[in-house]
Design a protein around this nucleic acid. Structure first.
Lengths: 350, 350
DNA sequence: TTGTAAGCGTTATCAG
DNA sequence: CTGATAACGCTTACAA
């Protein structure tokens, strides 16, 4: 209903300043192509009228928006916050505006949001990960929309990645865990369907088991949405198993925090009775007692990098190349060698 | 540079379907005002072409966007995340899309973002708090832009508030703290300049001191940006004072977590050696050991409520009325009665 | 340097 | 129910 019926237009400004609309437009977009004098007059008119150019009109005429869209699975926890903030800051310094929306981890909402952003004329898009319907990629292709995927590096994705190797990252962590002597390992993962990060982290763990000659049969993986309370519930289930796992690797820090709180609530000492690890190194992970062993992800660098790469694509200066960022394990108090309790499990090497 | 040079338009669809653009438009906006048969033909064309209506053009023609803008001080920590998520969900169910941007607590960036959102044709705006230049309110008035302020309830703000009484909330907390016997109180606040929430929380503490006949002279308030590490630094300063405060009230949970970690790092026991409180009841506050005493804020309710009220304003169904939400103190392990160490301070009542 | 005028892709009015 | 056609506010050749 409401609308700028009264909002001043270019025309109003032009009339008051006694010039043509073209001149006003120039004053705003290329101030040096107009006489100092005229400009002052125009700017005055702009000021008195409180004129703000109409974005939609500008977009239609100029056919670009200087706007980048990003769709992230959630804003509720900090997983994407830091990287996204860096993404925005970098975009801003490049003269672009960021539009964010969240899909609540639901593919069909993501698809809807993609279409919305395309329709809104976003010059480019940032998506999280690669797992989505081929139809969406086809659509983006047809729209010739520059897109990058972040938080996951893939050699052969349909779009360039600015991310890290989730599988290898989890492999490294699991490798260290196994070397400590753990051989009864469980995992609390995010829902892997439609989430390559979650899926690859599970795969990474399995790789590590295999590399150490451990069977994946004895591995229990519980999948649950990324929320603290879900981590707690999953932990309760796992701790009820017999024999009890000596370590629980979590798909991210949020789940790990839940697991840790639950363990402590159950009277289990971490890491003496059970070790717990997280992933992402968000702030949560360092404020628990003990602090969580986790995997460092260069969030801010990833955000900046994604912004730069995407803008290159948008401005036609490049076809879009993937960037692989390094992660590393952060060892902290929540992980320790298993205590040989009932002397049932032979010690691993190392 | 890039643009939809090739993106299909209404015209293309019309041509392929063998109808006029008007008919295609109707199919999309009022499907029941067109023959079943025609519609199917049109929809087919839409499908094969992968047509998505151009948002800018639509906005220009229809003069409304079904878009609401929100500008929050930061996305990096969870303070606004939950409320904003609820805001978005409610807007979505009302048929609106949310555009979020963050101002990094910088007034001039906020102003810029406001103009950007106005120019983009946002039908309404959500801002955080009330402290901003009058010029901005004048501008919004001229634009006849519906706006609400959240996270802070004010009787006489220039725009309606959907929020809570920050001053009273902190008063309640401080009152309980004082009743426990604390009389050497310090505070770590966010930067109060341009932030009414921070300012009012300090005022609330002072109110409580006065109400208990304590002088505000002996109150130390350290102001620092809302970040965990800043909370830690401030805590270090405060703990160096002599006599050492027996309790540190923090402007929010983020600062409180920093304070708590630092205290523990310094070998101080919380709450035996020093009590610490937070504000906001975000997740951080419950995962520390001990958990933080804090103030519960109905984030989700606030978000939903703001969405409803704003949409009423946008659709001209109301002038915008303020809503005051209730908060309450959440007592947890980080707060206890002071230990009468050097028997210097007389016990308070209660 | 400045003005004129032709779009940009939709919606909406008004006939048919 | 459907089709012309005039806005919508701005940018941008092209002229002057």
């Amino acid at each position: 209903m409401r609308m700028t019926r009264s909002a001043p237009t270019l025309n109003d400004v032009a009339r008051i300043a006694g010039v043509s609309t073209a001149t006003v437009s120039r004053c705003l977009n290329a101030p040096d192509r107009v006489f100092e004098d005229t400009r002052r007059r125009v700017m005055n008119a702009v000021e008195t009228l409180g004129y703000t150019p109409n974005f939609a009109a500008r977009v239609m005429a100029a056919r670009r928006t200087f706007t980048i869209g990003a769709i992230i699975p959630t804003m509720e926890n900090a997983i994407f916050a830091r990287g996204l903030q860096a993404f925005q800051e970098e975009l801003y310094s490049l003269g672009y505006t960021l539009l964010v929306s969240s899909s609540a981890y639901q593919p069909q909402i993501e698809e809807e949001q993609i279409r919305t952003l395309v329709a809104r004329g976003a010059d480019g898009l940032l998506l999280i990960g690669h797992d989505r319907d081929a139809r969406i990629y086809d659509y983006l292709d047809r729209q010739k929309m520059p897109v990058v995927a972040a938080w996951s590096y893939l050699e052969d994705g349909r779009i360039p990645s600015i991310g890290f190797d989730n599988r290898h990252a989890m492999y490294s962590l699991a490798d260290q865990v196994i070397r400590l002597g753990h051989d009864n390992i469980a995992m609390i993962s995010g829902i892997s369907e439609g989430n390559d990060r979650a899926r690859l982290r599970i795969d990474g763990l399995k790789d590590a088991l295999a590399a150490h000659g451990l069977s994946a049969d004895c591995l229990t993986v519980v999948e649950t949405p990324y929320e603290i309370d879900n981590g707690a519930v999953a932990m309760e289930t796992l701790m009820a198993r017999s024999p009890r796992p000596s370590v629980v690797l979590c798909g991210n820090d949020v789940l790990a925090v839940g697991a840790l709180l639950k363990a402590q609530e159950m009277g289990l000492r971490v890491p003496q009775d059970v070790s717990i690890t997280g992933f992402d190194q968000i702030e949560l992970a360092r404020i628990t007692t003990p602090q969580l062993t986790t995997v460092h992800v260069p969030h801010r660098k990833m955000g900046r990098c994604a912004a730069q790469e995407l803008v290159l694509m948008v401005t036609g200066q490049g076809p879009g190349k993937s960037v692989k960022l390094e992660t590393h394990v952060v060892l902290r108090g929540s992980l320790a060698a298993p205590v040989i309790a009932d002397a049932r499990s032979p010690q691993a090497d190392g």
